[in-house]
Design a binder for these strands. Structure first.
Lengths: 204, 204
DNA sequence: ACAAATTTTTTACGCAATAAAAATTTTTGT
DNA sequence: ACAAAAATTTTTATTGCGTAAAAAATTTGT
């Protein structure tokens, strides 16, 4: 049988995630109740808690799923298109924002980011940060390409540079989702100023 | 009387904040109940909600108070001591971490940061971001000093550079509070790599 | 001092989160 | 195939956050 129990667990997890995905998209985070998710998934409310801990835990799991899809395509989407660091980061950031807004609205993302910080020690908090890290690594790989092409100093660590740039991007992403009125173009301009002022700070 | 009502409101606010400050420090965020704060302040639980909206709202107000104290001394603490950008930011970051850890523990700060994102539209969320911005402006002023001294390119906007550096610092600060084991020295080293790799990325 | 306005408190409710007991279902051994 | 054992879900109960509306108390203006 290779574990009927395990199989049923996987089934329930999937059903819960599917139900949650639909309800979150339809009603948002606040108006979606654990009980509603449970009912739609055909389990009890306590079972949802047993699997995902908190409502935000369920939400983070939903996001993790779509983030894995992003990871699968990010290399192709970047694909050596940019020939300099500024364009690379701006393109990267645009992909992230695009992906985020097509899947969930800003208020939901605020909950996701907040939960990833307040529950950073939980299973799903950690899993979220792991995915974030893998996203940063995609940026690192592109930077290595730029170094090969002589567009970035070979002396600097691509990893360090990639993580720093990712952090800059992430700070502006949080700003993006924190204001309903912030447009992608607004944030793009700000991020450009961030990176250009840093890159040119020591060009005396 | 020039407003007895206003006076009493201020009184209640102060009592609530004082009670909350003590309870949060003693018991942490989770084990501190709104009712306990209310009782210690001599008001009803609903009144606490009326003033601060949520438990995290109370917490953000407590933090805002200590942040104002930091703002009053940050210029002196920085006081033109550093003669280059890297040292300046590292010193700035150290002051922030020092201030943070002497007032509240990491778990509380996770709640504060999370609330500032998820409730960014609320009164106290906005006030928190305003204080953050003023902190960044202190950094901007120091950078202007470095530009005068010819240690930073005068062509770049001190404001843009200051905001970018502040964002880098803040990302590492969040990392600092997100892990109980992250030491101030660990984060210092990471932040140094962040800024150095960015500053040197185009030194071909 | 009294009527009006403001503010707090009381009261009630929905939901998240947690814990423990009860019920159900799968697994295991024979 | 069956009964005991083990694992898992459901039921039940409790605490606390957050919100809303009515009731009570207090200040204000005349």
């Amino acid at each position: 049988m290779a574990g009927l129990r395990e199989q049923q667990k996987e089934d329930r997890k999937k059903r819960i995630l599917k139900a949650a995905k639909g309800l979150f998209a339809e009603l948002g985070h606040e108006r979606t109740t654990i009980e509603a998710i449970a009912e739609a998934a055909g389990v009890s409310g306590v079972t949802v808690h047993n699997y995902y801990g908190t409502k935000s835990g369920v939400l983070m799991a939903v996001v993790a799923e779509s983030d894995r899809a992003l990871l699968d395509q990010i290399d192709d989407a970047l694909g050596g298109l940019c020939d300099n660091l500024v364009d690379l980061l701006l393109h990267f950031a645009e992909i992230i924002r695009q992906h985020a807004t097509t899947h969930l609205d800003k208020s939901i993302w605020r909950q996701v980011i907040a939960a990833s910080i307040s529950d950073s020690g939980s299973r799903f908090g950690k899993s979220y940060h792991t995915l974030d890290h893998q996203l940063a690594l995609a940026l690192v790989r592109e930077i290595e390409g730029l170094q090969q092409a002589g567009r970035v100093a070979k002396e600097v660590s691509a990893y360090d540079l990639g993580k720093a740039l990712f952090n800059l991007q992430n700070a502006r992403f949080v700003e993006f989702i924190s204001s309903e009125s912030a447009s992608s173009a607004d944030i793009d301009a700000k991020l450009r100023r961030d990176i250009e002022s840093l890159l040119n700070a020591l060009r005396l």
